[in-house]
Computed example of a mutant assay.
Amino acid sequence: MAVLERDYRIDGIKWLLIVLVTFGHVIEPALSNPIANKLYSIIYIFHMPLFVFISGYYANVKDKEKLISKGFMLLETFLVVMIPLCFYYGSIIPLLNPENSGWYLISLITWYIIFLLIINKLVGKIVVQYNGCGGQLLIFSCLLAVFAYMLPLKQFGNLLSFQRSCMFLPFFMMGFLRRVKGLPIIPDVSKCIKLVLAIASLVCFAFCLIYSGRILHVLEFNNANVWHMSNLYNQNIGMLLVLKVLVYIGSIITTFAVLMFVNLPKSICAYGSKTLAYYVIQGMFAHILSTYLQVNFYQALFLCVCILILTTVLLRFVDSKFITNPFSTLLKWKY
């Protein structure tokens, strides 16, 4: 795969997504507020699927050395985020069952391992070259997602973010396959298709507003199996399966809609190159502060703005690598 030039429009979208990630985390104690609840449903239908899609597009899985190096760097970042949470809760459970920001980091490592070990090692050279097997890879990822959703593991389903890694894998695969096929990350489509996509997205957002609630939130989280949800919310399994499919469809539609319609000023896009540092800082402080302070909706808004402003100021004076990988930066390790 050819080396990709930096796309500042994608950087802008990444910065928007990190704002939504921070807001989504600080607002959790205030979900009893109807406005907060509905906004939460809208945010979660697309913001993490789009993050995963972008990660898949820019994953250079053919370069094994870089892939391994990236995996170790992400593992260090994961520990930087989760160790403070372990001290806060006085337990290693956050490390083994990562929630909030930690799950995404460990899932990225998992996706790299899937490509490196399963696809590149076990399947063979035909798949390594990715010639004409995009459909098989996408089907494989979808089957893995179905397997995770149907697997009746209440206690261990989220061990090292297993379920989320499986259930978000199709989005990672879609992004990856667009790149290996030489397609731009932002689809170039006709005005007619854009109009259809815009209308479909509005329908998806309306669905989120109408059916906003904890069931929809958990379906968007991708961290619970259908059996556990059926028992917890006293819902029919068939209905939960239908809702899950609708959430997946809605996530795909809104993901591509945001890609095609969001175009932020370049002054904002510049911050998008440091989204991992933003992710680490909000991961350490957003959930802890909002939970400890028990913020309401408007306090959550204020806290989100404060975290983003302080992080932006900090990153003007501190190298982002020192925040995401402090140990390897200080000790000059090379993975």
Rank of each mutant, 00 (worst) to 15 (best):
residue 17 L to R: 08
residue 112 Y to V: 13
residue 37 N to H: 13
residue 266 K to N: 11
residue 109 I to A: 12
residue 17 L to G: 01
residue 243 L to A: 04
residue 208 C to F: 06
residue 27 I to L: 13
residue 4 L to T: 08
residue 164 R to F: 07
residue 82 M to C: 08
residue 203 V to A: 15
residue 54 I to Y: 01
residue 318 V to T: 03
residue 50 L to S: 06
residue 175 G to W: 00
residue 25 H to F: 04
residue 13 I to A: 08
residue 202 L to S: 14
residue 235 Q to V: 06
residue 324 T to W: 02
residue 170 P to W: 12
residue 228 H to K: 14
residue 299 Q to S: 05
residue 165 S to G: 13
residue 114 I to R: 00
residue 184 P to W: 12
residue 159 L to I: 13
residue 313 V to I: 14
residue 49 P to K: 12
residue 45 I to F: 15
residue 326 P to H: 06
residue 192 C to M: 15
residue 304 C to P: 01
residue 258 V to T: 04
residue 66 K to A: 12
residue 184 P to E: 08
residue 20 L to R: 12
residue 71 G to Q: 04
residue 230 S to N: 02
residue 77 T to K: 06
residue 108 L to T: 06
residue 295 V to P: 00
residue 162 F to M: 13
residue 133 C to E: 01
residue 48 M to L: 08
residue 219 L to V: 10
residue 205 F to D: 04
residue 137 L to F: 02
residue 198 A to Y: 14
residue 123 V to A: 05
residue 321 K to V: 00
residue 293 L to E: 10
residue 250 G to F: 11
residue 180 V to L: 08
residue 149 Y to F: 15
residue 299 Q to F: 02
residue 151 L to C: 05
residue 162 F to L: 15
residue 259 L to E: 11
residue 25 H to Y: 06
residue 331 L to C: 11
residue 334 K to W: 12
residue 211 Y to T: 09
residue 116 L to A: 10
residue 50 L to G: 03
residue 176 F to D: 06
residue 39 L to S: 05
residue 242 V to A: 12
residue 206 A to S: 11
residue 124 G to F: 07
residue 68 I to R: 13
residue 94 P to D: 12
residue 252 I to S: 02
residue 26 V to W: 09
residue 284 M to P: 08
residue 300 A to E: 02
residue 96 L to T: 10
residue 168 F to Q: 01
residue 116 L to D: 03
residue 265 P to K: 08
residue 333 W to F: 15
residue 196 V to A: 11
residue 7 D to C: 04
residue 2 A to Y: 14
residue 17 L to D: 03
residue 311 T to C: 03
residue 161 S to G: 08
residue 310 L to P: 05
residue 96 L to R: 08
residue 139 I to M: 09
residue 234 N to K: 15
residue 163 Q to W: 07
residue 36 A to D: 06
residue 300 A to W: 00
residue 195 L to V: 11
residue 268 I to A: 00
residue 216 L to A: 00
residue 81 V to R: 08
residue 108 L to K: 04
residue 60 N to D: 13
residue 152 P to G: 08
residue 165 S to Q: 10
residue 127 V to K: 13
residue 323 I to F: 01
residue 265 P to Q: 00
residue 153 L to G: 07
